[in-house]
Structure formats: structure tokens, C-alpha cells
């Protein structure tokens, strides 16, 4: 926390230094003070647009994560489908999201839909990749446990591979959460009547550099907050899995028959 604040302070100082030494006009690089003033002056406006973006980001993050986890599980449950689907998914990521955004706007209109869709597209892939890789990398010796138990595939996937691979999900979600606001803002640039991305375009068109930078600061803050939130949530999920795997200890231990015999002799 303190280290973060120190870094932020150092960044602001560098910024101020650049303004002084660079002699750049205010509409190119406004000083931090005027950006801060814009944050205060336009607080209501920023909050209003920020809330829209936050909504898009959260919806996209939740749906994208669910899609990523769902796909990772499905592809592990049906290896035959995986051989077909995985190359398609990889190819889908080769299409730049900037190209897709106008198409999505065309299909889904100017509302939340296309922004959420772009966010989902950016989020699901790192989540899927992180989780499925980690599920692939569960050591073969550990999988022996499922073989000894003669576990059906779905039990092996759900009770052995998935919990073992949760750190991979966490890593994927960290990347996904960092991309999420980018997705929402790109969606807003293409066509929107609300949101921080829209506000930035408007402010730019009106040469309100300080307001544009204020929106930018808010996007950065949003990104950091969302990343933190996602990390916390997946931490809770891991805790939950641990708990559900726990067999409550019992104080009145009764010995199974053959152990009783074994201990008596």
C-alpha cells in the first residue's frame, strides 16, 4: 500500500517535471494539478460515466470468466471436442478486437451489449488458457489417484484437475481482469453515448485535455481495483474448494474391522 502510494507520488512528480521542462501546451499534456482539479470539478459527470464503464467491465469480467472456466472444463471433459474447438479458439484470438468492435456494435446496437461482448472476448481467453494449461499439467503420478479410484472422467476433472489447477485460473484471471477495462473502453470508442471511453473522445474533441486525462486516471484506477477484486474473488473460491474438500474431524474414531484386528495382535 505504502509502496504503491510512493510509486504514484513519484509518477505524479515525473509528470509535473515533464510539464515544466518540456514546455508542452496544456492541451497536449496538462499538469497534474489541473487534472486533479478536473477530477473534482467534473466529479458527478465522471462518476456517472465511470459507473457505466464499471458495469460493462464487471459484466464482461464475470461472463468472460464463467465462459473461460466453462470452456476449460468442457474441453477437458470431451477431449474429442477439444481437438476441433481449440484451434478455432486460438484462431479467434488472431482477429484484433478493434476489428470486431464495429461488427459487434452493428449486431448488438449502441447499448451495453457490444461493450460487454468485447470485454468477454478479451477476458475469456487468458482465463481459459491459464486454467486449461494448469489442468493439463497436473502430474501423471497425481492422476494415478483417479485411476486407482476408477474415477469417471468428470470426477477426475472436477475433484482432481480443477482444484489442483486453481493457481492457473488465478494467473489467467489476473491477466483477464487487466484487459477487461480495455475491452469496455474500446467498445465505447466505437460507438456509445456513455462511459469513460466515450467521455474521453468527447473531451478530446473539445480540447478538454484535463478532463480527458481525468477520465484516463479513472480508467487506470478502475483497472487496478478490478484486478484486485478479481484476485480476491478467486482467492475466496480457492478457499471454498479447500473447505469443501475437508472432511470434518471426528472425535469418536471407530476402527474399521481389519485395523482393529491388526492393532490387537
Amino acid at each position: 500500500m505504502i509502496r504503491g502510494l510512493t510509486l504514484a507520488a513519484a509518477f505524479v512528480a515525473l509528470w509535473q517535471l515533464a510539464v515544466w521542462l518540456g514546455g508542452l501546451p496544456r492541451f497536449v499534456l496538462p499538469p497534474p494539478v489541473s487534472v486533479f482539479a478536473a477530477l473534482v470539478d467534473h466529479a458527478a459527470l465522471l462518476a456517472d460515466h465511470g459507473f457505466t464503464t464499471l458495469l460493462e467491465v464487471m459484466a464482461g469480467l464475470v461472463l468472460g470468466t464463467a465462459l473461460g472456466i466453462g470452456l476449460a472444463l468442457a474441453l477437458h471433459l470431451w477431449p474429442a471436442a477439444r481437438r476441433v474447438v481449440e484451434p478455432v479458439l486460438v484462431a479467434s484470438q488472431a482477429v484484433p478486437v478493434f476489428v470486431l468492435a464495429p461488427v459487434l456494435t452493428l449486431w448488438l446496437g449502441y447499448g451495453l451489449g457490444p461493450k460487454v461482448a468485447v470485454t468477454v472476448l478479451l477476458v475469456f481467453f487468458p482465463v481459459l488458457g491459464g486454467l486449461i494449461d494448469a489442468m493439463d499439467r497436473v502430474p501423471d503420478t497425481v492422476l494415478d489417484l483417479a485411476r486407482i479410484a476408477r474415477a469417471p472422467r468428470w470426477r477426475e476433472v472436477l475433484f482432481l484437475r480443477l482444484p489442483t489447477a486453481l493457481p492457473g485460473l488465478r494467473a489467467g484471471l489476473r491477466i483477464g481482469a487487466t484487459f477487461a477495462p480495455t475491452g469496455a473502453v474500446i467498445g465505447e470508442w466505437v460507438g456509445a453515448s456513455k462511459g469513460l471511453g466515450y467521455l474521453m473522445l468527447m473531451a478530446n474533441a473539445r480540447s478538454q485535455a484535463d478532463l480527458m486525462f481525468a477520465a484516463l486516471v479513472l480508467v487506470i484506477a478502475l483497472t487496478l481495483a478490478v484486478r484486485r477484486l478479481a484476485d480476491w474473488a478467486v482467492g475466496r473460491l480457492i478457499g471454498l474448494v479447500h473447505f469443501s474438500g475437508t472432511v470434518r474431524p471426528s472425535t469418536s474414531g471407530r476402527l474399521p474391522a481389519q485395523q482393529r484386528i491388526a492393532r490387537n495382535d
Binding site: 497425481v142 483417479a146 474415477a151 470426477r155 482432481l160 482444484p163 489442483t164 479447500h242
Partner: peptide, 21 residues
Amino acid sequence: DLLLPHLTVAGNVGVIDRLAG
């Protein structure tokens, strides 16, 4: 030992049952 790090000792002892349903 093939112990699963995310399970308690009891969870690990019962893991085969859990996998077998």
C-alpha cells in the same frame, strides 16, 4: 506421497472415496 496441497489431511485420506463417488 501424492498428497494434494489444497486438501486437509482428512480430505487427502478420503480423496479416493471422493474420486470414486
